[in-house]
């Protein structure tokens, strides 16, 4: 399944699928690589609105995005996470690493 990238002004969001796990690895990486190379993008938003399941590999992918974004001088925000997904992000204390909205 490919991921939708929606851009507006200085921020662009990557819309995640229903289940976000290692099988999305390639698509996710190519989605964020494109955004990080784009000089006009200051912040990358990862949108969980449609997502109801993530696993630890997904957390790993978010960490990868975070370290690449840091190197590119950009920020990352996790948006619209709810339910189990939110619980998993909170158990891992990702609020200390990413902006949550």
């Amino acid at each position: 399944m490919s991921l939708n990238v929606v851009s507006r002004n200085a921020s662009s969001s990557i819309e995640l699928p229903k289940t976000f796990n290692y099988s999305n690895h390639k698509d996710f990486k190519s989605a964020y690589s494109g955004l990080l190379e784009d000089g006009g993008v200051r912040e990358v938003e990862v949108d969980f609105r449609a997502t109801s399941y993530i696993d630890s590999a997904a957390l790993g992918m978010l960490l990868m995005l975070r370290s690449c974004a840091e190197a590119a001088g950009k920020t990352v925000a996790l948006i619209n996470a709810s339910g189990t997904v939110r619980d998993i992000l909170e158990i891992a204390h990702f609020e200390t690493l990413f902006a949550f909205r």
Binding site: E90, I91, A92, H93, F94, T96, L97
Partner: peptide, 24 residues
């Protein structure tokens, strides 16, 4: 980063929960 650890007494009641308090 793990699910809450549970303190259980001999009557098999959960008397305390220790949720994840740090990043993995």
């Amino acid at each position: 980063g793990n699910p809450a650890a549970l303190v259980v007494d001999r009557e098999r009641r959960v008397v305390r929960e220790i949720p994840s308090g740090s990043i993995p």
